[in-house]
């Protein structure tokens, strides 16, 4: 399982990129995106998915 970013709502602030413990988020072709292969939903690392907790636009959602 992994998270994804709803690009239409994303403000490209980069807050999620800085919080992801697995470096799963990067800025590519003008938008932030989550690499599903690297995303663990933060399981075993934190009590909640970090990207979704910090995102001001609530656009980090389960894929």
């Amino acid at each position: 399982m992994a998270y994804k970013i709803k690009a239409s709502d994303c403000t490209a602030c980069g807050a999620c990129e800085a919080e992801c413990p697995n470096n799963a988020i990067s800025f590519k072709k003008g938008a932030y995106a989550i690499n599903a292969d690297l995303c663990t939903e933060c399981k075993g690392q934190f009590s909640s998915p970090q990207c979704a907790s910090v995102c001001p636009a609530d656009c980090c959602v389960p894929a």
Binding site: D9, T11, A12, C13, G14, A15, A18, V54, P56, A57
Partner: peptide, 16 residues
């Protein structure tokens, strides 16, 4: 510095 760590009721970072 576009990222933020709090939400204020007088701010809307969803658009610019």
């Amino acid at each position: 510095a576009p990222a933020c760590n709090i939400q204020c009721n007088y701010c809307n970072r969803k658009y610019d």
